[in-house]
Write a protein that binds this DNA or RNA. Sequence first.
DNA 1: TGCGTTTATATCGTGTACGATACAAATATA
DNA 2: TATATTTGTATCGTACACGATATAAACGCA
Lengths: 155, 155
Amino acid sequence: MDDEQLRLNNQVCFPIYSVSRLLTKAYKPYLDDMGITYPQYLVLMVLWENDGQTVNQISEKLLLNTNTVSPLLKRMEKANILERNRSSTDERIVIVNLTEKGWELKKKALVIPEKLLDILLARNVQLSEVLDLKDMLNEWIQILSDDNLNKSNTK
Amino acid sequence: MDDEQLRLNNQVCFPIYSVSRLLTKAYKPYLDDMGITYPQYLVLMVLWENDGQTVNQISEKLLLNTNTVSPLLKRMEKANILERNRSSTDERIVIVNLTEKGWELKKKALVIPEKLLDILLARNVQLSEVLDLKDMLNEWIQILSDDNLNKSNTK
DNA sequence: TGCGTTTATATCGTGTACGATACAAATATA
DNA sequence: TATATTTGTATCGTACACGATATAAACGCA
């Protein structure tokens, strides 16, 4: 019976969508302390690893469009977390650099991954399970971003 | 080195967040045909399974706040997909019923889960892997929604 | 060298999400 | 039964996401 497939319980996408939102919510108390949001936290992780990247480089690493990242960076600039400067050699490019405050936040962030993991481990989720999940999802990212690429190519 | 934990590649949450967005994007062509969005598709699945539910019942099943679902339903009412009516016995309650058009959309939706699965299976993802993932995520939903509950209780 | 094309970023419009808050109806209880 | 409390829904403000579009700078090439 095809009908079965349309039940919420039988879909994979709904749990992913829900867990994504619930995880963001679980992060919230820690991020509130830092005065940032979850997407802003992602931007910081990219810059902590490698400061001075362009808007394009940041949006590619986060798999987000530049028209999502642009205003996001502007809000972070307003909050004194980073600076945006046009390249002198290529006026189209905007280079993003962390401020003192942006680097300071890294110290506060160090405990976050640990805390989140603790919640799961405390509820008998195995660490190996978490790692398997990560690998599986990274595989899906490859597939799904390839798939999106194909669509825009054939247009 | 604690630093390692803060790398984008070492986080579980980022892949979940990304896959969630990429899956929604993969759904998009089919949902565009139906004139709805992904969250609206979720509402429809809830109502196809059980028509005539209240705003609260719908938002609980989708794990969304009512202040997210309320405007969502209004947009769907505007698009003639459903009707909202106050209960006569309890004036606070709004009961949501599908229209003819809302039921019609179910026929178009039947192929969607299959198509999505095909993309994954075509790329050598095992069906068992998909089912494992689903179970794992449903477990996480339990944990994370409990955790959120605890926070609001202790406040 | 002039001009069409590409590239990098940003703006606009629409639709979520969600915390905080509002508000009326229903319920509980003194 | 009058009033405090709870319940169900909605409004408001802020921050994403993303498709469509704009725009200026850089590039390619006749």
